[in-house]
Every structure is written in structure tokens, then in C-alpha cells.
């Protein structure tokens, strides 16, 4: 297992380097001036020039890239051009919020999507199946921001149950309470993905010979579904959860903005608007690394849910 993990981590280095080069070049060729974006449009030309000089923005792109790589080799992602804080600190401050949002969305995706997928498969081609499939299509078609706004209008404005501003502070109960609405709005997509995958996987498994045998031997329905069928249908569901984790991080940008929550997505947009090159670079490296780690964890999960899978 350790060998497998080490090998996988080492194989990510070229990927991360590729991401690094692309991000580094793209943000610098994109129009916009960090000095103006950070100091404001009323700043004098002298102040703008002095800022660019201080931040090394007047150096060639190659020199700037070399400096970045040198910092990276020493384990530093640099410091933010706006706040002066180490990029790692800025990222670590918001990363838990994005993770809890993504995990919350997955939680809703599983507790709602999985049972609906099973029900849909068991009542295959019945009216309930058709109804749930249409609902899942709606879930896939609804952009996360629209779901978020509808939920706010319904649960915050009309019923006044949840706050509009999701401030993830306070104790665990406050934190969970503040998480519910954003996680639910982001989780709608996961519900749809998981439901459709669970339905399809269950249909495959329910058609297998061993299920027919178990049924013929008189295995009770509940045990047949949960123990024999679901366990074997879990692999594609785990794959979907792993694969769409990256999608969730992407969609989290809008959810974080609408609910005014801190998070990686919001920090990326903020850094982009402020042309905070160093923070943006660091964020991209960490995001790419995060996706790699999630894929690794997904592979490990395969082995846990299916003993036939060996990690080599």
C-alpha cells in the first residue's frame, strides 16, 4: 500500500509541473496590471512603478519563473502580493471551508441520491422511475447558482430558517447550521449524478446470476438489495464521487460567492481580480494536488469496497 501511494505521488510531479507552467504563463499574458488592481485607480504613476519594482514584476517572465521555482524547491509558495501573508497560510485558512462544503454536498448527494437510485432501479420503467429520472435530469440541468438563489428565496427570505450569509464561525452546531444551505445547493448536482449512477449500477447487478440464485434461495428482499446488490454496485458510485469532487470544487466558486462563504473558489476569483499572481499560482498548485489526492483516495476506496481489487 505504501509503495503504491509513493509511486502515485511521484507520478503526479510532471502533472503538477505542467499545471504550474500553464498557470504561470496564462496569468501573466492575461491583460491587467497587478499594481493598478491592488493600489486602486487613483494611485500615482510613481507609486505604481515602485510597486511593480518591489514585486519584481519588471523582471522578465523567465526570471520570475526561476524565482518561483527556487521558492518552491525550498518549500515556499511565496507571499501574497496584496496581504503580504504566505500563500500557504492564506490557502490553509480557507481550505477547511471548501472541504467541508464539498463533503457536505457529497453527504447530501449520498443520503438523497443513493436511496433514490435504488428505488428507481427496483421500480424500473414504472411511473416512479420515470418521475425520478426527470427529477435527476432537472438536478443536472440546474446551475448551482440558480439552485442557491432559489433555496435562499425559499428557506431564507420566505421561511427565515437559514441565514443568507453563510458565516462558518462559532461552534460545531453553528458551523453545521451555516453549512446546510450551501451544501444542499451544491449537493443537488451530486444527488443527480449519484442517483443516475446508482440506478444504472443496481440494474446491472440485479441482472446477475448470483442475485437470481440468492432470490431463488429465498434471501429476504432487504438483505438481497443492501447486502448482495448494493455492495457490488458501490464501485461505480465511488468513482463518480471521486471524479466529481473536482467538479464540486469548481462549482463551489459560485456557491461561495452567493452565500458569501470563504473558500478556495472565492479566493481564486479574488486573486484573479486583484491580479495577485503569487496567490493564484499557489492556489492552482494546491488545487491540482488536491485533485490528485482525491483520485488516490478513490483508488484506495476501491480496495476497501471490493476485496478483488488489489493496489499494486
Amino acid at each position: 500500500m505504501i509503495g503504491f501511494i509513493t509511486k502515485r505521488l511521484l507520478s503526479t510531479i510532471p502533472t503538477l509541473f505542467g499545471v504550474l507552467v500553464i498557470v504561470f504563463v496564462m496569468i501573466r499574458v492575461a491583460p491587467g496590471d497587478p499594481a493598478l488592481a491592488i493600489l486602486g485607480d487613483n494611485a500615482s504613476q510613481e507609486a505604481l512603478d515602485a510597486f511593480r519594482d518591489r514585486m519584481g514584476l519588471n523582471d522578465s517572465m523567465l526570471v520570475q519563473f526561476g524565482r518561483f521555482l527556487s521558492d518552491l524547491a525550498q518549500g515556499s509558495l511565496g507571499t501574497s502580493m496584496v496581504s503580504g501573508k504566505p500563500v500557504v497560510t492564506s490557502v490553509m485558512e480557507v481550505l477547511p471551508y471548501t472541504l467541508e462544503l464539498a463533503l457536505g454536498a457529497i453527504f447530501f448527494g449520498i443520503i438523497i441520491g443513493l436511496p433514490l437510485g435504488i428505488i428507481s432501479a427496483l421500480w424500473r420503467n414504472g411511473w416512479l422511475d420515470y418521475f425520478l429520472r426527470v427529477v435527476s435530469l432537472l438536478g443536472l440541468s440546474f446551475p448551482a447558482f440558480l439552485t442557491a438563489i432559489l433555496l435562499i428565496l425559499w428557506l431564507s427570505i420566505e421561511w427565515r430558517i437559514f441565514p443568507v450569509i453563510s458565516s462558518p464561525t462559532g461552534g460545531p452546531i453553528d458551523r453545521i447550521y451555516n453549512l446546510i444551505l450551501p451544501a444542499l445547493s451544491l449537493g443537488v448536482i451530486m444527488v443527480a449524478y449519484i442517483m443516475r449512477t446508482a440506478r444504472s449500477a443496481m440494474l446491472d447487478v440485479l441482472g446477475e446470476d448470483y442475485i437470481r440464485t440468492a432470490r431463488a434461495k429465498g434471501a429476504p428482499g432487504r438483505r438481497l438489495i443492501l447486502h448482495h446488490a448494493l455492495r457490488n454496485a458501490l464501485i461505480p458510485i465511488v468513482t463518480v464521487v471521486g471524479l466529481y469532487f473536482g467538479l464540486l470544487i469548481g462549482n463551489a466558486v459560485l456557491t461561495e460567492i452567493i452565500f458569501n462563504r470563504p473558500g478556495l473558489g472565492k479566493l481564486i476569483v479574488l486573486s484573479l481580480n486583484q491580479r495577485d499572481y503569487t496567490t493564484l499560482q499557489g492556489l492552482m498548485v494546491i488545487s491540482a494536488f488536491l485533485i490528485v489526492i482525491v483520485n488516490l483516495l478513490t483508488d484506495i476506496c476501491y480496495a476497501l469496497v471490493d476485496p478483488r481489487v488489489k493496489l499494486k
Partner: peptide, 19 residues
């Protein structure tokens, strides 16, 4: 002082008395 760039989000939070 909250930083909320979208006017709709500011409006909604103002309506609910959060701001």
C-alpha cells in the same frame, strides 16, 4: 464590514436583517 460584491446578495441579507 462584510465584502459582498453582488448587489442581489447584499439586498437579500439586508431584507432578512442580517445587515
Amino acid at each position: 464590514v462584510r465584502y459582498i460584491s453582488a448587489i442581489s446578495a447584499r439586498d437579500l441579507a439586508f431584507q432578512t436583517g442580517e445587515l
